[in-house]
Write a protein that binds this DNA or RNA. Structure first.
Length: 135
DNA sequence: GCCAACGTTGGC
DNA sequence: GCCAACGTTGGC
């Protein structure tokens, strides 16, 4: 089991949009590092859903339901996407400010490399963010 | 709206 | 293969 963090601008695609659809292709990722992370995803892996730009906070958990396959929005055939489904919406979102201030999350890839839209989390980081969402 | 970080492009 | 210019992302 691996853990991830994926970003989306909620005015484009929000956690509630995912809940409504039930399943969605995580398309449009055009960054090699992010692509490599998606290629490493296995069915059943869990990912934090993070709202960038608006909200700037982690809002819920989703599950990888289909592993990497060609991105349907890519005409070149070079890029891949995974399919995700909703797992659990946080009772309380965890803001970037909270995560940045927390020593337990100081090594988080997303904190250190803020522009990366798909990044790995350690199991400890994943669980810690969950615990913050319940506080 | 600004700006830092950083990826990509293109000239040499 | 280097590096300057430029575009995009994303926090503030």
């Amino acid at each position: 089991m691996n853990y991830w963090l994926m970003k989306s601008e909620p005015d484009v695609f929000s956690y509630d949009d995912l809940v409504e659809k039930g399943k969605a292709e995580w398309d449009g990722v055009r960054n090699h590092a992010a692509q490599n992370n998606m290629k490493a995803m296995k069915k059943g892996d869990l990912s934090i859903f993070y709202h960038s730009n608006i909200g700037v906070e982690a809002v819920g958990i989703m599950q990888i339901v289909e592993e990497a396959a060609p991105d349907s929005t890519d005409e070149t055939g070079k890029w891949i996407a995974v399919h995700v489904g909703p797992k659990e919406k946080f009772e309380k979102p965890v803001t970037l400010k909270t995560m940045k201030a927390d020593p337990a999350l100081a090594e988080m890839v997303m904190i250190r490399q803020s522009r990366l839209s798909v990044s790995p989390l350690t199991e400890a980081e994943f669980k810690h963010i969950i615990s913050l969402s319940k506080a």
